[in-house]
Structures are given as structure tokens and as C-alpha cells.
Nucleic acid binder design. Structure first.
Lengths: 391, 391
DNA sequence: TCAAATAATTCAACCAATAAACAAATCAGC
DNA sequence: GCTGATTTGTTTATTGGTTGAATTATTTGA
């Protein structure tokens, strides 16, 4: 009778857990919140909350603010809010036609955003990474000028990433087995897939359920799978390769070597070619104008996407699909095609139809999600941040 | 900046966790294990382990046994093993052509197994459930005669089950919205999907990784998805409906209303019809004899299965697929077809090919998994069992 | 001005794990 | 057969953390 093996728990783990609980409660509250309110929300004692808050305030994660507007008698509460000068997340991205960096603070506000357009395929991995390093250094300097401490950096790339921070293959960048090193003089950096991080970004800002799949329509098609409020990366971090779900086993050849992959029906290039448009923006304009070629192309893409969505929903039983990348702006014309095919093929569609939503973050989703995932690390384990080695 | 909300942790939670850790360590050990060994394995102190073991022994979950054969000097150890007369799991199953019950103890040994063949479609839900109740009562009596206490019961059915214990639809039983009530006079019973429970059964006994997908080939095709050592049920419990993954959008009509579902290519009925065999056993004999019709049918089914497997692996990045139900015995002739198609379509196949394994538990997998899931509940939270209300 | 109400802190009590000392039981060597 | 080494298991004092009750602080309303 096997069961999952864990590690021993000591009292300090209790404190670490409750510290995170208090911090997250404050962070999730839209307004400054009192210690007493935190106590009732979390179920902890007021005494305990006071002790934990003391640690968080002296550690620079929380600050006392003006209390929320009073009501009734009694001693006025002292408001608690996340510190605006505490840790910050550095989100980085290298994509086909730009590279970027952003700084987000614990409150979730974007403090800085730097984007350099330019074809990264021509630049090659060395030059792209060097340029990214310069961008990251600038962003870090801006953050420190604000009094922020960069807690970590995460880089989003459109490709398969291994645990060790190696980009196995990023077809649309032309990268293969690229070792992403350290940020020169910077904080620790990890690398992750663009769609995964974009899904986290949408989870951070959106009103989304605990289970959803984010589908990213870029040059390739990727997906970020969020199960139970956490990203599912797969055993090797290569989950969500939705672009190569077979739609028709005898369909057109794909550059992955197989036939009939989704990318050949609903990938950006295939749709633009079928519609006769040059850019996604032009396609949206053509569709809005009612041009038949555009509408037909989008209907066909929607049907293929709907078939893939049906597969995902039948397999994972997620209720919500978030469409991002170029699909976000095209969703008005894709929606019917997706919904029709999914409604026909999802076994449970009759009782519980699939919800389709457009992503809200736009092209910065992955970069913002990358920064957010750094902050999530602090929110999930503030004890580590409090006891970090300091210069 | 949202993050998952938890509940407060007190000291008693620490004890509950460590209690589970010690119990699982003993349960996972093939031989009786000493307190000192448990301490080194878990990382807890010998003193702590002694205290926790005392609780578990007086609570009837562990017993002291003859120590394992000695080695070297020193005071001889006292062996610890899971109690053979502690809690037991009652596993129940209603399937197309039989109903069954089994009693499994904490050590994982099957203490009793009762199976009544008979077409449950003809019987109808009321009669099937009444018969199951009688079977469960007999199994429970046998367990109590052994000194076991039945800790709970889980029923496996081939269909979609909602959280409230209602069978939404079980097409092959002909059930629809069947409310599975209480077991008369028995322990609490929950209902779950057959493939899910079979996956748990294989996880319990097999040498399997923490992530795998169990594919069950019965009249329908279902899948149990195990991620990170735990069953993934989906937000409503309807995950794993692999049988209706589209293989060819213009394929034959399926009884689900769509076209070209996997079930139409690799379902038991489709394969037997194509091969001209009456039963799975006859098909296996024909294939072993090299009959062309049988081999062709299995090759075609393997290709369809391989396409579906490729979809699953591209999406979830699981390395291992366990084939159960009728596929277990037919795997020798399915393997090449599955491997070829999966190798072509899985994006990461070149670096890390998909591992195909035959299930080891045979037709009882779901029933045993059902019993095992009861015991898993005790192993995961022994504190609840120790403080249970007693008659 | 005083009582009621609410917020936050202080302090003793309790619970659980730890570390270290101690008791128990065996083996190995002479 | 005795002695010392060795390993197991228990005992005891200590530490870290939460709780609950009492206390202090600060405001509103009569």
C-alpha cells in the first residue's frame, strides 16, 4: 500500500505556513486591512496575527497605512498593506520579434516596462541573451532607484525548457539546446515556457476558476495548464504542446514531422495565408468588415481549435478555456466555430458548456506572468525571504 | 497578486502530519522496521518517533512484531508493521457483466473477494444496487469475523460520477442520473469512475512513476490520470474521457453524437468486429496464431490508440502509459502500432520515448483500487482514524 | 464625563518536537 | 564468564509556537 512520502514537519514549518497565510490575506485584500480582520479571515488568534505581522513589517513585506474609513465605535484599526518598497519580480521575455523586461512589485503594479523590438531570429541566441542582459540590468537599476529589491528573475521563451534552464528547442526562434546562463551580476534567473507563464499571468489578474487552460496563439500554438490553482508543468516541464494535437491524421505535413497537427489549421501563419491577410491586425479589420475570405478562414480555424479544445476538455475536465495571443483579438470571429465543435465533441457539454474567454493581458502576458511567478515565490514562502542572506 | 488561500495550521496539524509520515514509512517498508530506522528514514528524532508509534500502536494501526534478522552488535530492534486487524477497505464494483466486492487490509493483502457474474444491464440500477448491497454486507461480515473494521467503501462504476455520488451517465450500463444511496447499515460509501480507481489500483501495487495515464479498454475507453502521485479528477470529476478524443473528424458516427471518436477505432466492439472474433480471448488466440484479420484489426486499433496517446503525452507530458482492461492482454500486438504513431506525433519522442506498460492487476483493478483508496484515506490522515467516534 | 465598543498587546499555559542523557539488551573479544 | 562497545528505546529538560484570557489603548455615543 504505497502512498506519497513527505518530509517531517517541525514547529518552524507551522510558523512559515501561517506567515504565508497572513501575508497572502493582506495581499489579496483590495483595501488596507486590520490585524483583527486578518485574524477573523484566517481563523488565527489576534495574538498570533500580531506576532506574525510584526515579523512581516520588520522584514519589509508589510507596512502600516491609514486605516480604512471607520465605522461605529471602538479603537480605530491600523491598516496593513503590502510594502511598496519590498521585493520585486523581474519578468523577462525573448520572443520572435522583441525582447522585454518588466518590474512588478508585491502589490501587483507594474513599476517599469522596457521593450526592444527587433527580430530575435536574426540576432541569434548569444546576441539575444546579451541584449536581454543589458535590458535586465537597466530594469534592475530602475527598480533599485525606487527602493525595491529584485527577488528573482524569470525568463519566458517560446519553446521547450528543461529543468536545468536549458532551452531544448524553440522552433520559432531557431534555438536548439541553448544554455541560458546567469544574469551578469543579477539575481537568480529561471527559464520557463511562454504559454505557461502567460497562463500564470492571467491567473494573477483575472477572475478565473482554479482549473483552466490558457491557449496561446502565436507563430506556434502553446498552452498553459492550470490545475487546482497551480501550473501543471508535467514531469519534465513539457506539458501543453497543444499545437501538435492531431486534427486529421491525413492532414497537411507539419514541420514537427507528423501530419495534420492543429498548428497547420489554426496557427497564425496558416490562418493568415488562408485569409490572404498580412498581419493579425489586418485580418481583424477584414473580418470586422465582413470580408468572406477572412470570415471563412476564421471559421475553419475555429473548427480546428474547437476540436482541440474538445480533446483538452474531455481529458482534463476544465470548464474554462482562455484564448490568448492572436486569438484574444480574433475571438469574436472564432468563438462560434470553437463553441460549435466543442459542443458537439465534449461529452459533458450538454450539462456544462465550455466557457471561452479572451485573455486580458495582451502581448505582455508572459512577461508579466514571469514577474508574477517570482512574487508568488515570495508570497508562498515569506519565511525564506525574511531569512535571506543580506549584503 | 492572488495566491492560493489556505487554512491556519496549529500544533495538532504538525502531529497529524508526522503521524501520517510514520505510518506511511512503516506501511511502505517491505519488512518489519524498527523505530530507529523510521527515525533515520523520516528525519524525525527517535524520541518523537517513539511517541508517535505509541499512539499508532494503541490506536490499532501498528503492531510490534518479531524484529527483522539481526546484524551486528547492539540492543535488538523491535519490528513495527501495519496491524493485520486494523481498518480495512471495502472495494465495490458494478460493471457490465458482473458485480463484486473485496476486502483489503492496511498491508495491502486481499482478504476476501466476492464476485457475482451476471448482466447488470438487464438487472437495472435498482436491482444491481440491491444485489451489491447484499454482497457488501456479506463482505463486511467476513471482514468483521477476521477482526477487521471496515473504514469505508468505494464503488467503481463505468461512467461519469458527480461529487454528490450521483451517476450522471453510464452508457454501457444503461444508467442515467442514478442516485447511489447509502449502504444499508454499512460504512460511508463514495462512488467513483472505474478507470480512475483502476489507475489508483495500479499505482498501489506497481512500480510506476509519479505521473502516468492508465488507459482502460473495456466496452468504452476511459483513462485515469495520475499526476504527481495523486489522481487528477478534474474540476467536476469528469476527467479522462479519452474514448471520445477525435481521431478523424469525418470518421464513423459515435453514440456520443460526434464523429470519429477513438472508441469507434479502438473500442472493444469495433476491434472485435473488424477482427471477426467473438471475445477478447478468442482475438488473442487468433492473433497469436497469426491470423491476418486479427493482426490487421489490432494494428489499426494500435494506430488509433497511438494517435490518442500522442495527444495525451503532448498535452500532459507523462512518460508512461499503462494499458489496462482488454488492452493488457492484447498489448503484444498493439504495442508496435501505438509506438509507431506515438513516436511520430509526440513532440518530445526523440529525446524521451513514451513507455508503454501492460496493467498488472487484471479485471479486478478497479475494485482493488476502490478498496485501496479507502485505505489511502486512513494512511493520509491517521489522526482522524485514531479519533474516530467509536460505538 | 463616563460607559460601551473595538483594536492591539501582554502573559501564563499548553502542545509538540528536539537534544542529550540514560537505561536496556545484545555482540565481540579476551 | 566478564567487560566494553554498540545499538535501541525511553526519559527529562528545553525550545518554539499557538492559544486564551486579561490588559491597555482609543474612539463613539449618551
Amino acid at each position: 500500500m504505497m502512498s506519497a512520502q513527505g518530509s517531517p514537519v517541525r514547529q518552524s514549518s507551522v510558523r512559515a505556513h501561517n506567515l504565508a497565510l497572513v501575508l497572502q490575506t493582506v495581499a489579496n485584500s483590495p483595501d488596507p486591512i486590520s490585524r483583527a480582520a486578518v485574524a477573523t479571515v484566517t481563523g488565527l488568534t489576534r495574538a498570533t496575527v500580531s506576532a506574525l505581522v510584526d515579523d512581516l513589517v520588520t522584514g519589509g513585506l508589510l507596512t502600516e497605512r491609514e486605516p480604512a474609513p471607520r465605522t461605529g465605535a471602538g479603537r480605530p484599526a491600523v491598516g496593513l498593506a503590502v510594502a511598496p518598497d519590498g521585493p520585486a519580480g523581474l519578468g523577462l521575455e525573448i520572443n520572435v520579434d522583441y525582447r522585454g523586461a518588466c518590474v512588478v512589485d508585491l502589490a501587483g503594479t507594474v513599476r517599469h516596462r522596457l521593450v526592444e523590438p527587433g527580430d530575435q531570429r536574426l540576432a541569434g541566441p548569444q546576441e539575444a541573451l546579451a541584449g536581454l542582459g543589458r535590458l535586465a540590468a537597466r530594469a534592475r537599476a530602475l527598480a533599485e532607484a525606487d527602493g525595491l529589491t529584485v527577488a528573482g528573475a524569470v525568463l519566458a521563451v517560446p519553446g521547450l525548457v528543461t529543468a536545468g534552464g536549458v532551452v531544448r528547442i524553440a522552433p520559432n526562434l531557431g534555438w536548439q539546446d541553448v544554455v541560458v546562463g546567469e544574469l551578469p551580476g543579477g539575481p537568480a534567473m529561471t527559464v520557463d515556457n511562454e504559454a505557461n507563464l502567460a497562463a500564470l499571468g492571467e491567473l494573477d489578474v483575472g477572475d478565473l476558476p482554479r482549473d483552466f487552460v490558457y491557449v496561446s496563439g502565436e507563430i506556434g500554438i502553446g498552452a498553459g495548464i492550470v490545475l487546482d490553482g497551480a501550473l501543471y508543468r508535467g514531469s519534465r516541464g513539457w506539458s501543453g504542446e497543444i499545437g501538435h494535437i492531431p486534427i486529421d491524421p491525413d492532414g497537411p505535413a507539419c514541420r514537427c514531422g507528423a501530419r495534420g497537427c492543429l498548428e497547420q489549421y489554426a496557427g497564425q501563419e496558416a490562418v493568415l495565408r488562408a485569409a490572404g491577410s498580412d498581419t493579425v491586425a489586418a485580418l481583424a479589420i477584414a473580418a470586422a468588415a465582413g470580408q468572406a475570405a477572412a470570415l471563412d478562414a476564421l471559421t475553419a480555424a475555429g473548427a480546428a481549435l474547437g476540436t482541440a479544445v474538445a480533446t483538452v476538455v474531455n481529458l482534463l475536465d476544465v470548464r474554462t478555456i482562455v484564448l490568448g495571443g492572436c486569438y484574444a483579438s480574433l475571438l469574436p470571429w472564432l468563438r462560434d466555430g470553437i463553441a460549435a465543435e466543442a459542443g458537439r465533441r465534449v461529452l459533458t457539454a450538454a450539462w456544462s458548456p465550455v466557457q471561452l474567454r479572451a485573455a486580458t493581458l495582451g502581448p505582455d502576458a508572459a512577461m508579466l506572468g514571469a514577474a508574477g511567478s517570482v512574487l508568488r515565490g515570495v508570497l508562498d514562502d515569506p519565511a525564506r525571504w525574511l531569512s535571506r542572506p543580506r549584503p
